[in-house]
Design a protein around this nucleic acid. Structure first.
Length: 514
DNA sequence: TCTGGGGTCCTTGGGCGT
DNA sequence: TCTGACGCCCAAGGACCC
């Protein structure tokens, strides 16, 4: 999908159409997740620090991501892809590979092109958004094609033309070549894919290591036989927070690690997993990042066990100087849960005595029970969950300088790509930018998160454009309407209430969004 | 102006059993 | 009994992707 998050926001807020829209974290350390094409003209792009984006594009509309809404739109798009083929490999909320041959819809270029055009039209009809489609014989080429096709286009790479097409392109075009590898190659005088191919496998292996070197050389030759894989097992679950201000207080740091452990276990359980390796991540004041991990004797999804392990790991980390980010993760995942293990252990107890239940490392001497600390921040439920609440807008044109209070971290960026990998007929359709992020809690204590959806008893549906000094400014418009009018209310106006996002198109299934 | 969050994969190096 | 080769697991870091 093209500029997915920003496009969804523009679709749901007519007054933002044609305007520079930047979605991302609005806190002092936020970065841009997605910028609309209008904003990109100012030089704003993904992963750019938000402060820099504001300087480049001071009149843009700055929004917090609404991941649940994006997720709902994504499900619609993925549903369309699955109608094409049973083999759909989502890369993110807005990007996926599709094996068109497995779907029986395309065995030659003409059929692939037709399927791609149909798909783009279907996506437009179902969501009102534009997507780009790349069609090629492999995933790598389909991805390259979809990038080239953006925005709102379709590109088919004819079999036999791959090397010729790739040769003049920058090495950065190839998936797996980021800033570091790109720089590495540049120093060796390699800037294009053609030069990469000429360098030869041995040379690349020497420069980049076995796996990367071999893989990159093959890609440079247009070779990629990776299949489209529909189901991917999750390998790890993690949660992390960057703090607006570096933490120095050791007690506070310990407390934050506990909270992260709780959230991580919540996510772990939601996914139906347990895990054996606990990982603590610490980013220090100077941006140096270190991880410490501990592997248990058996998998767990027990909050107390993960908390204790994380606390133990923290003890081995020097935090003098300050900490800007903390994270807790669990890897070495198993499908069964703690309950299963205990059930198993109990059953086994009958036969054999004195075994360590579930084979778990007894986590520490004084297993400090889960202390029932309450969340001091109170209002960050939305932040943690990553579950949507209405998002916030800051600095939207005409906004009341609201600057999202308690702004939260942003979630990922998205880009989707549908690619197919069949003989001459793979297709990559790209859908970009989705997900559901933390939103600003609305309504609690009459706090109106900028960008959040609301409903007024008299004026109907709208969204919060800004709030402050006891007032909240709402723009009354909906996806199907033209740009709406702005009205200001007292923050405790009884006729104003939070609401769910409206469907982008019609009243169809998208109504479930958000 | 500093640089998010949630992942995956790879590499290196040490410990350990065979 | 000692030693080296080998493979595996674990820990840590880094690059990359969306």
């Amino acid at each position: 999908m093209d500029a997915f998050y920003a496009s969804v926001e523009q679709a749901s807020k007519p007054s933002l159409r044609g305007k520079a829209v930047i979605v991302g974290g609005l806190g002092p350390r936020g970065v841009v997740a997605t910028a609309s094409y209008e904003a990109r003209r100012f030089g704003v792009h993904s992963a750019m620090p938000m402060a820099q984006a504001r300087r480049l594009c001071p009149n843009g509309a700055y929004l917090i991501p609404r991941f649940r809404l994006y997720q709902a739109v994504s499900e619609i798009v993925m549903g369309l892809l699955r109608e094409l083929s049973p083999l759909v490999e989502p890369l993110s909320l807005d990007e996926a590979f599709v094996d068109l041959e497995a779907g029986g819809v395309a065995f030659d270029s003409a059929a692939a092109r037709a399927a791609g055009e149909r798909l783009r039209a279907d996506i437009r009809a179902a969501t009102g958004l534009s997507g780009s489609v790349g069609l090629a014989g492999s995933k790598m080429l389909a991805k390259v094609a979809s990038e080239e096709a953006k925005p709102a286009g379709l590109l088919l790479i004819e079999p036999g033309t791959e090397r010729e097409l790739l040769a003049p392109m920058s090495v950065r075009t190839l998936p797996g070549v980021g800033p570091v590898t790109g720089q590495h190659l540049r120093r060796a005088g390699i800037t294009t894919v053609g030069e990469l191919a000429e360098a030869g496998e041995d040379e690349l292996v020497r420069m980049l290591g076995r796996s990367h070197g071999v893989g990159l050389h093959r890609m440079a030759l247009g070779l990629d036989d990776r299949p489209v894989v529909a189901e991917r097992d999750t390998k790890s679950v993690s949660v992390e927070d960057t703090f607006d201000v570096d933490l120095h207080d050791r007690v506070r740091i310990r407390y934050e690690v506990q909270r992260l452990a709780d959230r991580c276990v919540g996510r772990l359980r939601d996914s139906g997993h347990s895990g054996r390796t606990i990982v603590l991540k610490v980013r220090r004041y100077d941006f140096s990042t270190l991880t410490r991990s501990e592997t248990l004797r058996g998998p767990t999804d027990d909050v107390a066990v993960v908390r204790e392990a994380a606390a133990r790991l923290l003890e081995s980390v020097d935090t003098t100087g300050g900490v800007r980010l903390l994270g807790v993760g669990v890897s070495g995942l198993a499908d069964y849960t703690q309950e299963d293990l205990f059930a198993f252990a109990l059953a086994a107890e009958g036969e054999e005595a004195g075994s360590d239940p579930a084979g778990l490392e007894p986590a520490g001497p004084d297993a400090a029970g889960p202390d029932t600390t309450t969340d001091p921040a109170g209002a960050d439920g939305a932040v943690e969950g990553g579950l949507d609440g209405p998002a916030g807008v800051v600095g939207a044109p005409g906004a009341l300088g609201a600057s999202g209070a308690g702004l939260d971290p942003v979630g990922g960026v998205g880009g989707a790509q549908v690619s197919a990998g069949a003989d001459g007929s793979a297709a990559a359709a790209e859908v970009q930018g989705a997900d559901g992020a933390p939103g600003e809690g609305v309504g609690v204590g009459r706090r109106w998160g900028a960008g959040s959806d609301v409903r007024h008893a008299v004026y109907g549906a709208g969204w919060v454009q800004g709030s402050g000094v006891g007032r909240v400014t709402v723009r009354f418009e909906r996806p199907g309407s033209g740009p709406g009018r702005v009205r200001t209310f007292r923050v405790d106006d009884p006729e104003l209430a939070p609401s769910d996002p409206l469907p982008l198109v019609g009243d169809g299934p998208a109504a479930a969004a958000g």
